[in-house]
Lab assay of single mutants.
Amino acid sequence: MTEYKLVVVGAGGVGKSALTIQLIQNHFVDEYDPTIEDSYRKQVVIDGETCLLDILDTAGQEEYSAMRDQYMRTGEGFLCVFAINNTKSFEDIHHYREQIKRVKDSEDVPMVLVGNKCDLPSRTVDTKQAQDLARSYGIPFIETSAKTRQGVDDAFYTLVREIRKHKEKMSKDGKKKKKKSKTKCVIM
């Protein structure tokens, strides 16, 4: 069974824990209790493949930012979460993405942009803004509501699919490099 290491990042209060708990335990946590770091595991079937999701729910508070490099190193894919009623959390996505790329030393890291709290009427981040940002990053965008469960499975499952595509691409690139290195030079 394939294991996928997913990391949920975003500013404090955007609903990272609520999304994760909704996926794992099928219930909505409405009281806000700032996370330092929590880890969850769940076995699911995605596109006919049974897999184990190892999900790291991270601290959004700035005082825990020193811990970010460590979990970013171990993560295979990242859910970059903002709240649709919090423009600052949307603007912060850029910083999370840049930090992930720096730590992973790669421009090509599996990510999904997630606009959470889409059940709320007080939207300050337009869907088109988020779609445009995701398009500019070359990553999928999904709106979710941890409260109603809308888009929750889709967000995590899409990230797994992005990781699969990335692994497939990397193995193809690896095979191309191996083929090239088999060419021999004969000096007579």
Rank of each mutant, 00 (worst) to 15 (best):
H27E: 10
L6W: 04
L52K: 15
R41M: 07
G48I: 06
S17C: 03
R41Y: 07
D57K: 02
Q43A: 11
G10K: 01
P34M: 07
V9R: 03
Q61N: 14
I46R: 10
E3R: 14
V44F: 15
E62I: 07
V14W: 04
I21C: 15
K5N: 09
K16A: 05
E49M: 07
N26V: 05
E63R: 09
E63I: 04
P34H: 03
D30G: 12
E37R: 03
S39Y: 10
Q25C: 07
G48E: 10
E31L: 13
S17H: 01
G15P: 00
E63Q: 10
S17L: 00
T2W: 08
D30L: 11
H27I: 09
L23Q: 15
Q25L: 07
V7E: 06
D38P: 00
T35I: 00
C51H: 12
Y32D: 04
E31W: 12
G48V: 07
V44A: 13
G15Q: 01
G48H: 09
A18F: 02
I36D: 01
S39F: 08
E62M: 08
C51L: 11
L6T: 08
L53M: 11
E3I: 09
Q61V: 10
G13C: 12
K16P: 00
D30Y: 11
Y4R: 14
G48L: 05
Y40P: 00
V29H: 13
D47S: 09
N26A: 13
V44P: 11
V44G: 14
L56P: 01
Y4Q: 12
Q25V: 05
A11C: 12
L53K: 06
E63G: 08
E31P: 12
P34G: 04
H27G: 13
E49I: 05
E37M: 05
D47N: 10
G10P: 00
G10N: 02
S39A: 15
H27L: 13
D33L: 03
V7S: 08
A18W: 03
N26Q: 10
L6A: 06
D38M: 01
G13V: 10
E3Y: 09
Q43H: 10
E49Y: 06
L23N: 15
L19M: 12
Q43D: 12
G12C: 10
E37V: 04
E63F: 05
E3F: 08
D38Q: 01
G15F: 00
C51I: 14
E49K: 11
V7G: 04
T58F: 01
Q43N: 13
E31M: 11
Y4M: 14
T2G: 15
T58G: 05
L53Q: 08
D57Y: 01
A59M: 04
G13L: 11
A18K: 08
C51D: 09
E31F: 15
V9S: 05
R41C: 07
I21S: 15
Q61G: 12
Y40G: 01
V29T: 12
T2F: 09
Y32I: 04
R41K: 08
T35M: 01
E31N: 15
T50M: 11
L19W: 05
A59P: 04
Y64H: 08
N26F: 06
Y32K: 03
D54C: 06
I21V: 15
K42H: 07
E31V: 14
E3Q: 13
Y32R: 05
R41N: 08
V29D: 13
A59F: 02
Y40F: 03
I36A: 01
I24C: 09
Q25A: 07
D57T: 00
E3C: 12
G60M: 01
L52F: 13
D54L: 05
I21W: 05
R41L: 06
K5G: 06
V29W: 08
D30Q: 14
E3W: 06
A18E: 03
D38Y: 03
L23A: 15
T58Q: 02
A11R: 06
T35Q: 01
Y32T: 04
L19F: 08
S39V: 06
V14G: 11
T2R: 14
K5S: 07
I55W: 04
L53E: 08
I24M: 14
Y4K: 15
L56W: 04
E49A: 10
E31T: 13
E63C: 08
A11N: 07
T35R: 02
V14Y: 07
V45N: 13
Q22K: 11
I46E: 10
G15I: 01
L52I: 15
E62W: 06
Y40R: 00
V29C: 13
E62T: 09
A59S: 14
T58P: 04
V14E: 10
K42L: 08
G13A: 11
A18G: 12
V9N: 05
T20Q: 03
E63A: 07
T20D: 06
V29E: 13
D38N: 03
V44S: 13
T50E: 12
L56H: 07
V8S: 04
T20H: 02
T50G: 10
Q43G: 11
D47Y: 06
D47I: 03
S17W: 00
T20G: 05
I24N: 09
Q25G: 10
S39R: 15
G12S: 13
L23K: 15
L23T: 15
Y32L: 05
Q25D: 08
V8G: 03
I21R: 12
F28P: 03
I36Y: 04
V7F: 06
Q25S: 10
D30M: 11
C51P: 13
A18T: 08
Q22M: 05
V7P: 02
L6V: 11
L19D: 11
H27Q: 14
K5I: 02
K42C: 07
I36W: 03
V8N: 02
T20W: 01
I36K: 00
L56M: 09
R41S: 07
T20E: 03
L56Q: 03
N26K: 13
N26P: 04
F28N: 03
H27N: 12
V45R: 11
V45L: 11
K42F: 08
C51N: 11
E63H: 08
Y64M: 07
F28H: 06
A59E: 03
Y4L: 14
T35C: 00
I21H: 07
T58L: 03
N26S: 12
A59T: 08
C51E: 10
V45Y: 09
D47R: 09
G13Y: 09
V14I: 13
K42Q: 11
L53G: 09
T20V: 09
E49G: 09
F28L: 04
K42V: 08
G10T: 00
I55A: 14
D54E: 15
D38C: 00
V8W: 02
K42M: 09
L53H: 07
A59L: 00
V45H: 10
T2V: 11
K16D: 00
Y40L: 01
D54M: 06
V29G: 10
A11W: 07
Y32E: 05
G60V: 02
